[in-house]
Computed example of a mutant assay.
Amino acid sequence: MFRFFLSVCVLGSLALTPFARAADTLMMATTTSTQDSGLLEYLEPVFKKETGIELKWVAVGTGKALEIAKNCDADVLLVHAPSAEMEFVKAGHGTDRRQVMYNDFIIVGPASDPAGIKGKSTAEALGGIFEAKAGFVSRGDQSGTHKAEQKLWKQADITPDKDPKYFSAGQGMIATLNMAAEKQAYSLTDRGTWITFADKMGDKNPLVIVVEGDKALFNQYSVITVNAAQCPKVKKDLAQKFEDWWVAPSTQQKIADYKLKGKQLFFPNAESGAGK
């Protein structure tokens, strides 16, 4: 009798919880910057209220996020490594890639700027760090930021790991910045995470922005639906609602409105078509 009563209470509780059904839960794999910056925490309650869909996510480097999706352990992606994303879609792992927002990468380093690179171009700055053996901390985790960094070193015709002071953190952006601060070294970071890091560090932050504004530092974010043809359990309909929500004008405005101490972290640039 007691067991029956308990079962009725549990079922009744679930019935009264509008978002409790597994079918209304969407799994996203995303990059650490969307979480570390606070953007997801800001947008998730709005998404749930407006769509009735509960969003869950794992925040890792973009490379790992794409692997999670290939293994059919996510329904959607929010990532920032365009070349890797296009390869992912071309290989049939994802569909309907749509850009949603951007910010930029910056090079940060000790306030003393031992390599003397402040205000230089990205290629000149990386060359200066390498020549001065001033120290550089890389994420080293195949994230979008790490992939962008590797591309920048290649464009500068430099093999960075020949420098004994080139360190691979193998961790997220916040941990990498902490390591750079400890070693008084330079690092590449997305601006959104940097603003969050600098705010938390306050006057104790030994790092400053030394290079910014270069076109090579543009940082695009996109959403992608995992291909249901390869992953039959993907919640395609919910994923479509997710993508439509991100490109909607009202959501784009919310992205623009998200600021930390008056500083805008992301800039909306949605396009309605797929494959951008």
Rank of each mutant, 00 (worst) to 15 (best):
M1I: 02
F2D: 05
R3Q: 12
F4K: 12
S13V: 02
L14T: 01
A20M: 02
R21N: 03
A23P: 04
A23N: 07
L26F: 11
M28C: 13
A29T: 05
T30Q: 11
L39N: 13
L40G: 13
E41H: 14
E44N: 15
P45E: 07
F47D: 12
F47Q: 15
K48V: 11
W57Q: 10
V58D: 15
V58N: 15
G61V: 14
T62A: 12
G63P: 14
K64T: 10
K70C: 01
K70P: 00
N71D: 04
C72T: 05
D73P: 00
A74S: 14
D75P: 01
V79K: 00
A81M: 01
P82H: 01
M86L: 03
K90D: 11
A91F: 06
H93P: 06
H93S: 04
H93G: 08
T95V: 13
R97H: 06
Q99L: 03
Q99V: 14
M101H: 12
I107G: 06
I107N: 01
G116R: 05
K118N: 09
G119M: 14
A123L: 08
A123I: 14
G127T: 07
I129Q: 02
I129D: 08
E131R: 08
G135M: 00
F136G: 05
F136E: 02
R139S: 06
G140E: 11
L152W: 13
Q155A: 14
D157W: 07
I158V: 14
D161R: 01
D163Y: 05
D163G: 00
F167V: 08
Y186T: 04
Y186P: 11
L188S: 06
T189E: 11
G192R: 01
T193K: 01
I195C: 00
I195H: 04
F197N: 04
A198Q: 12
G202N: 02
K204R: 11
V210F: 02
G213I: 01
D214K: 05
D214V: 06
L217E: 12
V223W: 05
I224V: 15
Q230P: 01
C231M: 09
V234L: 15
V234I: 12
L238T: 03
Q240W: 08
K241V: 03
F242P: 05
D244E: 13
W245F: 11
W245L: 06
P249A: 07
I255Y: 15
K259L: 04
L260Q: 15
L260W: 03
G262M: 02
Q264E: 09
F266Y: 13
